[in-house]
Design a protein around this nucleic acid. Structure first.
Lengths: 191, 191
DNA sequence: TTTGTTACTTACATGCAAGTAAGTAACTTT
DNA sequence: AAAGTTACTTACTTGCATGTAAGTAACAAA
């Protein structure tokens, strides 16, 4: 999977893996350099400070999210929001119990400013996309929830990362149990 | 607040604060020793390894939860589960964007075993208490939700810590917005 | 009163993660 | 072919977090 990538991109991918599995603080250059058979200094060549790699990881994750958004653009609102659930389900299956946003946002009281900004920007992007989809699904009759789209999006923004985190200590099936509750909140019309 | 406590208890309280604000990895002995005007070695006197302090923090937080449970034992199911929301609301107001469980559970792939066990035990305790309250509230007519109490408890277990984490980057009002969604999931009878 | 215990401090060891400086081999451009 | 650029490595510095060992002052118990 990583084979066709440049070293720079491999560093970002591996860094993202470790950030999602360990959190920002516990992820260390050595974990990456060992895996790629390079030296720590090689990582500094591409990313002078850890913060720089952190920002690159957030931006890559955001880019992947936006790629997903485009790839489901023609589908129904229900299918679109399920695609986001699938992203988180894949994290869970790969033992990544943190999303990039959650891992970065809870890492510091005073986080490097660039990372704070990148994380918030990413989180806003997801929120706005959810609101837009919920609105559209409500308008076209796919959904029948009675809350506001904004309230529902706020709930999803908390529950998606929360389910991922909690699932680490809970049994098999827990994650899907929560996701089915989330899907239920949309009040999808029975066929 | 801390003045009447023993040094040992002050260390636990401050440690808990930092764990909830920074995460387990970013919290360091020096932060505590500086605040209490003692030396790092004094902390090692009470807690030989960081892991020991970690376990003590989890157990103290669990003890506080159980104290809260007893203190609301005579109230209605709705008031009881709202007391749990209040606990998380207080965290949020105090800029503690992680609960102890979330902070510890997501800290390591391979966490010190004692801490893993203590965290899971604590999480199970909350889950079981939620299920019991939801069942009782359903039986006595306070609630009218149609999901199972277990499904609802699973949702709460994800959303409470998730809302706390996400609220760090979102505006004022976000946390209560999500909590009102959670409360709504109970379908409390209109008066 | 001597012995022990508690609650620390001083001083030190260890290890490791981040970061830097200088060098080198390969490739690219002019 | 010379000069520059890219992609690294080697070798090093720095700083700090965990942890340990030994000492000390105060108080408590026998």
């Amino acid at each position: 999977m990583l084979r066709s990538l440049t070293t720079r991109d491999k560093i970002i991918e591996l860094g993202r893996d470790f950030v999602q599995k360990l959190g920002y603080h516990a992820f260390k250059y050595q974990l990456i350099s060992k895996e790629l058979n390079i030296k720590n200094a090689a990582i500094h060549h591409y990313f002078p400070a850890k913060e720089d790699l952190g920002v690159a990881i957030i931006e890559k994750d955001l880019a992947d999210f936006q790629w997903m958004v485009r790839s489901v653009g023609e589908k129904s609102a229900f299918e679109r929001v399920n695609a986001l659930i699938d992203v988180y389900r894949t994290y869970q299956q790969e033992s990544k119990n943190l999303c990039v946003i959650g891992a970065c946002i809870s890492a510091y009281v005073e986080m490097p400013e660039k990372m704070t900004i990148a994380s918030k920007n990413y989180q806003d992007t997801i929120y706005n996309w959810l609101v837009a989809n919920f609105k559209q699904g409500l308008d076209n009759g796919e959904f029948h929830f009675t809350d506001t789209p904004e309230d529902l999006a706020a709930l999803w923004l908390a529950t998606l990362p929360g389910a991922l985190q909690a699932s680490k200590a809970r049994g098999k099936g827990y994650f899907d149990q929560v996701m089915s509750q989330l899907s239920g909140s949309l009040q999808v019309a029975a066929q």
